[in-house]
Amino acid sequence: MTAVTAPPAARVPARPARSPWFHVVMVPFTLLWLAPIVFVVLVALRDFDDIATRGLGALPGSLSLDGFAGALADGRVVRALLNSGVVTVFAVLASLALASVSAYALSRFRIPLRRTLLLVMLAGNLLPPQILLIPVSRIAQDLGIYDTLFALVVVQVGFGLGFYTFVLHGFMRSLPAEVFEAALLDGAGAGRTFWSIVLPLCRPALAALAALATTWIFNDLIWAMTVLRTEAKFPVTAALLNLQGGFSNSWNVIAAGSLVAAVPTAIVFFVFQKQFVSGLLVGANK
């Protein structure tokens, strides 16, 4: 009777040791990147008397939450946060929905001049927004949607759609053709294939784009000032600009308001962090 020997275990290649010079170089850059955030946090935690007495650049003599109380007590900041949330949610959902359908059609169907159409959509993002401010404002007025949150949603969707479609188009073209052939053999139509197969496979790319779009739309100022006029409809970026005018000497209130406005986008990024990283690395090993 011959003994059966187990095959030797496959060797796992050892990870190359990272050079200590990497940390030596990156630590100063990290501290430089964190310095403005730390400065804003320290200013927000100081009271008005401490800043007026010791100067804006001094270390805090005592910590106080008066700046946050002043920012939240001002109804403009809370109302602006709600406006930004509404615009961001609807704009992100509409952008990704339209971009998904467009990318699926351009990547899987023989549409005449589809590459030209894709490049034209992407080229719109290369135009400087400053040269489009007056045309966009006039178009919004002619359509009767000027000074509405709907106009801001339309503008955000229009100017982000080309980039989102371009990214999703490349991702969908990299999907294995066998998946679509199997769906066709099972009798699935184009709509069923898109909903049941393509969208689940595109989840990493959609999550990465959702995180990016949320950051861009929530932090936008230029388009809000272009299509909005009423202060009650301003998003949080425009409200902070007005807050600086109303509290020109209360730097702790301004800093606290900026930190409060940064919380939603930070939450979205940390929630989608895993999907965001995987979406950026899709195709890196192909």
Rank of each mutant, 00 (worst) to 15 (best):
residue 1 M to D: 15
residue 2 T to Q: 14
residue 9 A to D: 14
residue 10 A to Q: 15
residue 15 R to T: 09
residue 16 P to Y: 03
residue 19 S to Y: 09
residue 22 F to W: 14
residue 22 F to Q: 10
residue 23 H to C: 09
residue 23 H to F: 14
residue 25 V to E: 10
residue 28 P to E: 13
residue 32 L to P: 05
residue 32 L to S: 06
residue 35 A to V: 07
residue 35 A to H: 04
residue 36 P to R: 04
residue 36 P to D: 02
residue 37 I to R: 04
residue 43 V to A: 04
residue 44 A to I: 00
residue 45 L to D: 10
residue 46 R to S: 05
residue 47 D to E: 05
residue 47 D to C: 05
residue 49 D to K: 09
residue 51 I to A: 01
residue 56 L to M: 12
residue 60 P to N: 03
residue 60 P to S: 03
residue 60 P to R: 00
residue 64 S to R: 10
residue 75 G to Y: 04
residue 77 V to R: 00
residue 77 V to L: 15
residue 78 V to E: 05
residue 79 R to I: 12
residue 80 A to P: 00
residue 84 S to Y: 09
residue 85 G to L: 09
residue 85 G to F: 02
residue 86 V to Q: 07
residue 88 T to V: 03
residue 90 F to K: 05
residue 90 F to S: 06
residue 91 A to D: 12
residue 91 A to T: 10
residue 92 V to D: 00
residue 92 V to S: 05
residue 92 V to R: 00
residue 93 L to V: 15
residue 94 A to R: 03
residue 96 L to Y: 02
residue 97 A to Y: 12
residue 106 L to W: 06
residue 107 S to E: 04
residue 111 I to H: 03
residue 112 P to N: 00
residue 112 P to Q: 01
residue 113 L to S: 09
residue 114 R to C: 08
residue 116 T to I: 14
residue 119 L to C: 09
residue 119 L to W: 10
residue 123 A to I: 08
residue 123 A to G: 11
residue 129 P to R: 09
residue 129 P to K: 03
residue 133 L to T: 11
residue 136 V to A: 01
residue 137 S to Q: 12
residue 139 I to S: 04
residue 145 I to H: 08
residue 145 I to L: 14
residue 146 Y to C: 05
residue 148 T to M: 02
residue 150 F to P: 11
residue 157 V to D: 03
residue 161 L to C: 07
residue 163 F to D: 02
residue 163 F to A: 05
residue 165 T to H: 11
residue 165 T to N: 08
residue 165 T to A: 09
residue 166 F to T: 05
residue 167 V to D: 08
residue 169 H to C: 11
residue 172 M to P: 02
residue 173 R to V: 15
residue 178 E to V: 13
residue 182 A to M: 11
residue 184 L to N: 14
residue 185 L to G: 13
residue 188 A to E: 13
residue 190 A to Q: 13
residue 191 G to D: 12
residue 193 T to H: 04
residue 195 W to F: 15
residue 199 L to F: 10
residue 200 P to L: 04
residue 203 R to I: 14
residue 206 L to N: 00
residue 206 L to Y: 10
residue 209 L to F: 01
residue 215 T to C: 09
residue 217 I to Q: 02
residue 219 N to Q: 07
residue 220 D to R: 04
residue 222 I to R: 01
residue 224 A to H: 01
residue 226 T to S: 05
residue 228 L to R: 01
residue 230 T to D: 11
residue 230 T to A: 08
residue 231 E to Y: 15
residue 233 K to W: 10
residue 233 K to D: 14
residue 234 F to S: 01
residue 238 A to S: 12
residue 241 L to Q: 12
residue 250 S to C: 10
residue 250 S to H: 12
residue 252 N to S: 11
residue 254 I to L: 13
residue 257 G to V: 04
residue 259 L to F: 06
residue 259 L to M: 03
residue 261 A to K: 03
residue 262 A to Q: 09
residue 265 T to I: 11
residue 269 F to D: 00
residue 270 F to Y: 12
residue 272 F to E: 07
residue 273 Q to A: 15
residue 281 L to H: 12
residue 286 K to N: 06
